[in-house]
Each structure stands twice: as C-alpha cells, then as structure tokens.
C-alpha cells in the first residue's frame, strides 16, 4: 500500500490561515488501511481543526467527506456540485490523490494534510516498512523475492558492497543489508545459481529517470 504520516497540526493550521470554510477529504484506499487518511481520520482531524480555530477566536466551517478513492476520476465527480462552495480542500489522501483532485477541480486550492511515504507493508499495527520503489523492471524471481532496488540503500545489483557488516547496512545498524538478505534467501531456496543470472546492468529507463511515467494497456484502453 501507499503509506503516509500526518502532517503536524501546526503546519496544517498555518496552511488553513487564509480560509474559513473548507472540505476535509479522506480516501477509503491505502491511507485508510495505514490509518492516516480514512473516514475516522477525517473526523478526528476536522474536530481538531474546529477546536483549535475556535479556541483561537476564529471559527472554521468544515465539510467532512471520504471518497472511495481519490485516484480515480469517477469517485471525484460527486464533489463537483459543491466543491466551489468551499474556499479550499484539505486532502488526507496520498500525493497522487491530492494531485488528481487538483487537476479535476482547477478552481479549488488543494492542501495536503499528510506526508506521503512509500510503497510498503504493515509489519505490525503502527509500523510500516518499504518494499517497492516501482522501478518498472521487476527482478524478484532472481533475488529470492527480496528487492535489491529497495532493500539495498545503494540499489546496487551485484551483491553486498563494502558497507555490509555482519548482515547490517552501513547507513544504519538497524537496517539489514538487502544483499545479505537476498543471498541468505537464495541459499535457503537452493537457488544461488540465480545470483549469476542477474543482468549485466539494470536499465533505469523504466524507472524515474525518464520523468513522470505513464502506463498504457492497449488491451484495456
């Protein structure tokens, strides 16, 4: 899922300084699962903002909504009839959702209520870790299901670097060496021959190097 963290309330209040009536918009997608931008968080954030603003002597009117997804146009459309009745939208969806809403409703200022994180997994309640950087050229079948792009701090492709010490990475002793994990897994799977099958170099043209990416599935268009 796409993860995120709430922005500090002070930062949000500063963003809202010019506005007296806004929409707080959540998303039932990833941000609901990682408990940063769902219906419940819309309610809590809205109450918090109303209390903070009223205590400061300047009330704010808030419409609370939570869309099925903010990254699909059909779920944004229901906002069209009323969105311009409000001065701004504070979205607590991921950066993709916020931007998509901004594109669809060009007259409404869009404000981010969260800091979008990474593509990750839930380790336990309240803890998420990164697994994928969306490089566009997956090699997990050769690396024991462990991603060298994400799990190696340098995203290198040909084994542990000199900074790997007893299974940990030089960037942080809490971070495991991605390549040590890969080799350990390949040994367990008896697939060390895969180690030699990795491509001589990785093409990064499917990653971010070419700017914002686009996927067109001709079979679905």
């Amino acid at each position: 899922m796409i993860t995120g963290t709430p922005k500090p309330i002070e930062e949000i209040l500063e963003m809202l300084e010019p506005y007296d009536n806004i929409i707080v918009a959540g998303c039932f997608g990833c941000v609901t699962v990682c408990r940063v931008g769902g219906d419940k968080e819309v309610q809590v954030l809205s109450s918090t903002l109303r209390l903070a603003r009223e205590a400061a002597g300047r009330k704010i009117e808030i419409k609370e909504v939570c869309l099925e997804r903010q990254c699909d146009p059909e779920y944004l459309e229901p906002m069209r009839p009323y969105i311009e009745d409000y001065q701004a939208v504070l979205s607590i969806a991921c950066g993709a959702g916020i931007q998509f809403m901004a594109e669809k409703f060009t007259k409404s200022p869009l404000l981010p209520g969260i800091n979008t994180g990474f593509l990750g997994v839930t380790e336990r309640q309240g803890e998420w870790t990164e697994r994928c950087q969306g490089c566009g050229d997956c090699v997990l079948h050769l690396t024991g299901g462990i991603c060298p792009v994400t799990r190696c701090a340098k995203s290198i492709f040909h084994g542990p670097c000199g900074g790997s010490v007893q299974g940990t990475c030089e960037v942080d002793k809490e971070v495991k060496c991605g390549w040590q994990l890969i080799i350990d897994r390949l040994v367990t799977l008896d697939q060390m021959d895969n180690y030699g099958k990795l491509k001589p170099y990785k093409g990064w043209d499917s990653s971010r190097d070419g700017g914002p990416r686009r996927i067109i599935r001709e079979d679905m268009v």
């Binding site: 419940k40 309610q43 809590v44 109450s47 918090t48 109303r50 209390l51």
Partner: peptide, 11 residues
C-alpha cells in the same frame, strides 16, 4: 469510544 467521539464532547 474513539478519538472523534471524545473530541466531539469538547466541541
């Protein structure tokens, strides 16, 4: 009880 209910009491 959840957080929104508690905050509503203050509101």
């Amino acid at each position: 009880i959840d957080e929104s209910l508690l905050l509503k009491a203050f509101e």
